[in-house]
């Protein structure tokens, strides 16, 4: 078995999501090669070489890979892919953008969002917004899959000593161009990796109120902040904070849902959290059915009281 893992990075540092993918690769078993496609990304390759369990790192350094354009990276992955039994990437927007394209270039089917490895070609994955779990077997010559990070404990970032090899660029496909990027800056932990997440929904009322009420709680707990789709659509917070079927999937130790009713699509993104707390003024809110602890009350008085009691 030879497994190719596509590294997720920003040309400077390896994204933690890659460590979860390597963990999934170890469950499959075999030689693990990490592909770093980037521009000026030597530091990323060096970091990937230190990751526990990695036997080789391939570095394709070319301006064409600077912004992870799917047209260019998928072309590179497809050019070397037939030499591997498995190709894996993280279920991030980058992984989901690139990997299906690479799979189609290799003429193989792929599996999205695996949450468990049953055998080298059989995996579990959630369907219907997490309301059913499918066991899927791939009879393809190459198993191509994205890995749901929260389902696999990350391997250690240190301890490995893989060799870094340069890989020739597959060039620019010439059909797409990066224009710009607006990245939301935050001092808080990254949402998908945070130990505690505090999320607000429509019930928080306004963007101003979201921050007035929830910021002190998140600060006190050292938590990341999330939101329901209703809060994002109402313009309270930017959409990269959305948790759910169409947003981010989180599974922290503690998830505090404030003013969130708990639609199926929201539950899809957080119901694997270890402990769920719901604070809602509605006794009948569906979120209460998945919550370990739920408190009925006005969030505007309950949350500040909670902050002062922690």
């Amino acid at each position: 078995m030879s497994i190719l893992v596509i590294a997720e990075h920003d040309n400077k540092a390896l994204n933690g999501a890659t460590l979860n993918v390597v963990a999934a690769a170890q469950k499959i078993g075999g030689d693990i090669t990490v592909l770093v496609a980037g521009s000026g990304a030597q530091a990323v390759a060096d970091q990937a070489a230190k990751v526990a369990g990695v036997s080789k790192v391939l570095l394709a350094d070319d301006a064409a890979y600077e912004n992870q354009l799917a047209e260019n990276v998928a072309k590179l992955v497809a050019s070397i892919g037939s030499g591997y039994s498995h190709i894996l990437a993280a279920s991030t927007t980058t992984g989901k953008n690139i990997l299906p394209r690479a799979a189609a270039l290799l003429d193989v089917s792929m599996i999205t969002d695996i949450t468990a490895v049953d055998s080298a070609n059989t995996f579990k994955r959630p369907i219907y917004a997490g309301n059913a779990i499918a066991t899927v077997q791939s009879d393809e010559s190459i198993v191509v899959a994205t890995v749901r990070g929260t389902a696999f404990d990350p391997v250690a970032a240190e301890g490995g000593s893989a060799a870094v090899e340069a890989l020739a660029s597959a060039g620019d496909a010439g059909i797409s161009k990066f224009i710009n990027e607006e990245i939301v800056k935050s001092e808080r932990p990254e949402l998908t990796a945070a130990r505690i997440v505090v999320s607000g929904g429509r019930g928080v009322g306004s963007g101003e109120n979201y921050h007035t009420v929830l910021d002190p709680l998140a600060d006190k707990l050292g938590a990341a902040q999330g939101a329901s789709r209703a809060a994002v659509d109402a313009g309270f917070v930017p959409n990269d904070m959305q948790v759910g079927q169409t947003g981010k999937i989180v599974a922290p130790e503690l998830y505090i849902a404030v003013g969130i009713s708990g639609a199926i699509q929201h539950l899809a993104g957080m119901k694997d959290s270890k402990v769920i707390v719901a604070i809602n003024k509605d006794e009948e809110a569906p979120i209460n059915a998945v919550a370990d602890y739920w408190l009925v009350g006005d969030l505007n008085s309950v949350v500040p009281e909670l902050v002062s009691h922690i």
């Binding site: 912004n67 354009l69 991030t92 927007t93 980058t94 059909i175 797409s176 161009k177 990066f178 224009i179 710009n180 990027e181 607006e182 990245i183 939301v184 998908t192 930017p238 959409n239 990269d240 981010k248």
Partner: peptide
Amino acid sequence: EIDGGLQTVEL
């Protein structure tokens, strides 16, 4: 819509 925010590409 990407994980960290927004990205614009031209095709």
